[in-house]
Measured scan of single mutants.
Amino acid sequence: MKHYEVEILDAKTREKLCFLDKVEPHATIAEIKNLFTKTHPQWYPARQSLRLDPKGKSLKDEDVLQKLPVGTTATLYFRDLGAQISWVTVFLTEYAGPLFIYLLFYFRVPFIYGHKYDFTSSRHTVVHLACICHSFHYIKRLLETLFVHRFSHGTMPLRNIFKNCTYYWGFAAWMAYYINHPLYTPPTYGAQQVKLALAIFVICQLGNFSIHMALRDLRPAGSKTRKIPYPTKNPFTWLFLLVSCPNYTYEVGSWIGFAIMTQCLPVALFSLVGFTQMTIWAKGKHRSYLKEFRDYPPLRMPIIPFLL
């Protein structure tokens, strides 16, 4: 059985960083990364991007050496992705923050609204209902991160945790300040508006959870398998008939419901920014589905049925 020789060059300087002799033909890129780490321990596998061309796409960890368009002496180019952190850690951090930050404003801890309001309670029912909904949303997200989601990528750049936390924590503080303010004004149409908004919120939260469970069942634990998601017997998953990412559709719907319930401008802005970002993600995933699966359902749109 022939063996391969693998040289790894710096993608920027073309400097030879490592030479691997007698590499098995069936070795994966993940195994080559581990061998590279032995000579350069500062670059652990998650930091490494190996590619066939200095400006090309990163090879997948599961790619097999003998199936790549290389000879028995293969040249790979290395790029440092920077310090990495696990997706689970990032999600837990960015979701735990809003949960606790919101509660600080809800309980009106000292130095927020003035001494005479310390630890007082709002007289408006919608304020307490909003706290329950907000807390439920982020507790749900935390539990899904721990027990439901299966991540195709193990890590992301460390800098992302600061960007994500600034976004989630900042908006949580902004909306919580106004919703729990002693001078907060309840919704214009009173109980009817709150009940309608609560119904929207609850339905969308159930829908979002149902989609996450359906997506989880598509991917076996520990794998990166991708399949076309289809509706199940659960009615909340029937939205798969019309959109590629109904989890985002339901998520946006939840925040629209919360915005109607609280009639709070920061919540509306958070919903708008979230919708914009999720639309970008949904379009990317939709394109990926179309590219990977020739039999992908043609009627589906990325996030909004028939429109977007």
Score class of each variant (00 low, 15 high):
G222S: 03
K33E: 08
W238Q: 03
W43C: 12
K140S: 15
D10M: 08
K33L: 08
L272S: 14
E251H: 00
D61H: 11
P157L: 08
M278R: 05
P98I: 14
E94R: 03
L272G: 00
V90T: 15
L218R: 13
E15F: 02
F201R: 02
L50F: 10
L103D: 00
K12M: 06
L50K: 05
T28K: 05
F236C: 12
L146I: 12
L299Q: 13
E5I: 14
H153Q: 13
W174Q: 04
K195Q: 03
L299D: 01
H212N: 01
K291E: 09
K163S: 15
I85F: 08
V23T: 07
D10A: 05
F151R: 15
T225R: 11
H212M: 02
F147L: 10
I304K: 05
D217C: 15
H115P: 06
V109F: 02
P25I: 13
L183P: 04
L76R: 01
Y4I: 14
T39S: 09
T28D: 01
R14E: 10
A46S: 09
E7V: 07
W87V: 03
Q277H: 05
Q42P: 09
L20F: 09
D80H: 05
V267A: 10
C131R: 05
Q193Y: 04
I228F: 10
S86W: 14
A83Y: 15
A30T: 10
M301F: 14
L103F: 14
F275I: 12
G56H: 15
A130I: 00
S121F: 12
N208I: 00
H212E: 14
G257F: 12
R123Q: 09
T276S: 10
E94S: 04
F151C: 01
L239W: 04
V70E: 12
K67R: 10
L290G: 03
R294M: 11
K12S: 01
T125P: 10
H40Q: 13
P25L: 07
I132Y: 15
H128V: 05
G97Q: 14
P41T: 03
L290T: 14
I303V: 09
H153W: 02
P98T: 03
E251K: 05
K285M: 07
K116N: 13
I29D: 04
F201W: 13
T225G: 15
P305Y: 14
A172H: 03
A199P: 11
Y4Q: 13
T93W: 01
P298S: 10
G71P: 03
I101F: 09
H153S: 04
F201G: 00
T145L: 10
I304H: 02
L242F: 07
P54Y: 15
W281L: 05
R123E: 14
V23S: 01
Q84I: 01
A83F: 03
A130S: 09
D80A: 13
P229I: 07
Q193R: 10
V88P: 14
V70S: 13
K33M: 03
L146Y: 04
Y167N: 00
H134I: 00
K224F: 03
R226Q: 09
T232M: 15
K291Y: 14
Y44E: 06
L242M: 06
R300W: 03
P297V: 08
S152I: 15
L269P: 05
L142F: 15
V64A: 12
K38R: 12
M301T: 12
P235F: 00
F162P: 04
H128Q: 05
N234K: 08
S244T: 11
Y102K: 01
R14T: 06
P157Y: 04
A11P: 10
A46P: 12
Q192N: 09
N234A: 15
N164Y: 01
N164R: 10
E5P: 00
E144V: 03
F19G: 05
W87M: 02
H3P: 12
P229A: 12
T166I: 11
W255P: 15
H153T: 06
P231S: 11
L81W: 13
Y77D: 04
A11G: 06
R300Q: 02
Y113I: 12
D61P: 12
K16I: 08
F171A: 15
N180S: 07
F147C: 13
S271E: 03
G257H: 14
Q66H: 12
K22C: 02
L146F: 11
H134W: 04
L99W: 10
W255F: 15
I179D: 15
L196F: 00
Q42E: 06
I179V: 13
T262I: 01
D21H: 02
P186F: 14
P298G: 14
P186H: 04
H134E: 06
G207H: 15
Q277E: 13
G154T: 05
W43M: 02
S58V: 07
V243E: 12
T75A: 11
G257S: 09
H3V: 11
P157S: 10
E251T: 14
E7C: 11
K22S: 07
A197P: 11
R226P: 12
I112T: 09
P229H: 01
V148K: 15
A46Q: 13
K33T: 08
M261R: 01
Y177R: 04
E31V: 07
H40T: 02
P54C: 15
P25T: 03
G222K: 00
L35S: 13
P246S: 05
G114R: 10
P98D: 07
L35V: 06
L198H: 09
D118C: 14
K140T: 02
K67N: 12
F201P: 04
F151H: 07
I132R: 02
P98Y: 00
D295C: 14
E7G: 09
T166F: 06
A172P: 09
I132A: 13
G257C: 08
H137G: 10
K60S: 12
K55T: 07
Y189F: 12
L59E: 00
F107K: 02
F107N: 15
L242P: 06
F201Y: 03
I260V: 11
Y230K: 14
K60P: 05
P297M: 00
R150G: 04
F136N: 04
I200R: 01
T249A: 10
Q263L: 07
I304W: 11
N164G: 00
Y168Q: 11
I8S: 08
A268S: 08
R219L: 08
N160R: 01
V267K: 00
V127T: 03
T155A: 11
P302E: 01
K16N: 06
P41A: 06
E94D: 03
T262L: 12
K224S: 04
S86A: 15
T225W: 01
Y250W: 15
E292R: 11
F136K: 00
A191H: 09
V70A: 11
P246N: 15
Y178S: 12
P182D: 00
M301W: 06
L76Q: 06
T145Y: 08
I112A: 15
A221T: 10
I200A: 08
L272P: 03
I179N: 02
D61F: 11
K33D: 13
R14L: 12
L104S: 04
R159F: 15
E31L: 06
I132F: 05
T225V: 05
E31S: 12
T185W: 15
T28Y: 08
F270Y: 11
F100G: 13
G154E: 14
T155I: 10
F151P: 11
F19V: 05
P246F: 01
T125R: 11
F240L: 10
F293P: 02
Y189N: 13
M213E: 15
T13L: 06
T125K: 07
F293W: 13
A46D: 00
V126L: 10
G97S: 13
S210H: 11
K33N: 05
I101K: 01
K195D: 01
M175A: 14
A46N: 13
N180Y: 04
A173R: 05
Y102D: 05
P110T: 03
Y250I: 15
F171P: 00
F136C: 03
V243P: 05
G97C: 13
W255Q: 15
I85T: 11
W169C: 08
A197D: 01
D21G: 11
H212L: 03
S135I: 04
G154H: 05
K233G: 14
T232Q: 02
A83I: 06
C165H: 15
L104H: 12
P41Q: 04
L50I: 03
P69H: 04
D10S: 09
D21I: 04
L242T: 14
R294L: 08
A172G: 04
E15N: 14
V194W: 15
P305H: 03
T73I: 05
L20G: 06
L183F: 10
D80N: 11
Y44S: 09
P266R: 09
A199Y: 15
S223V: 00
D118W: 14
E292K: 11
I179F: 02
T75K: 04
